[in-house]
């Protein structure tokens, strides 16, 4: 169940939108922040708030790669695999992360700390190859820098 305060603030957000669908991404992000990921229950709650069907919320939720319809770790790593980062050898970065975390893309490390996901362009082509960890952008990545970032993010979490 979502807390009453969250429900009230989301209702206000939907009421302020010209069409309810326009508020869908905000509602999904807030619910995801509350639950950790967008649970089936959260999809139902979003649907009721927005006056859409569960399927219509699912259509949007599964389109956006930063809405998670599966449980994720404490922090989510998005590694860009679009053209600029690909030219800058993002595949090597992805390979390194897979090795370090012991997971395939889509997986969560055994300690529950990191979920590894590929993503499309984050607009950091100038600093390619790039990734983000829980929304913090990192560019000009090398395997060594990735190790440093993982250690730093792990320390920040504990």
């Amino acid at each position: 169940m979502m807390p009453e305060a969250l429900r009230t603030s989301l209702q206000a957000r939907v009421a302020a939108a010209v069409t309810p669908r326009e508020a869908a991404v905000d509602v999904m992000k807030e619910l995801q922040a509350h639950y950790g990921w967008l649970t089936d229950e959260a999809v139902g709650e979003a649907a009721r708030l927005l006056g859409l069907s569960e399927l219509q919320v699912e259509e949007l939720a599964t389109f956006y790669e930063m809405i998670y319809r599966r449980p994720v770790g404490k922090k989510v790593i998005h590694v860009c695999d679009s053209i600029s980062c690909w030219c800058a050898c993002c595949e090597e970065i992805m390979r390194h992360l897979k090795e370090r975390l012991g997971v395939e893309p889509g997986g969560t490390s055994a300690d529950g700390m990191f979920t590894l996901l590929p993503c499309c362009c984050m607009g950091m082509c100038g600093d390619s190859p790039a990734m983000s960890v829980n929304g913090t952008p990192y560019g000009k990545l090398t395997p060594e820098l990735v190790d440093e970032i993982l250690a730093r993010e792990r320390a920040l979490a504990s």
Partner: peptide
Amino acid sequence: GTDFGVTGSAGRVYFGRFA
């Protein structure tokens, strides 16, 4: 209708229901 639609993106596009 509202109970059938398209989910996912790119190569994962799926036409179906929520459940």
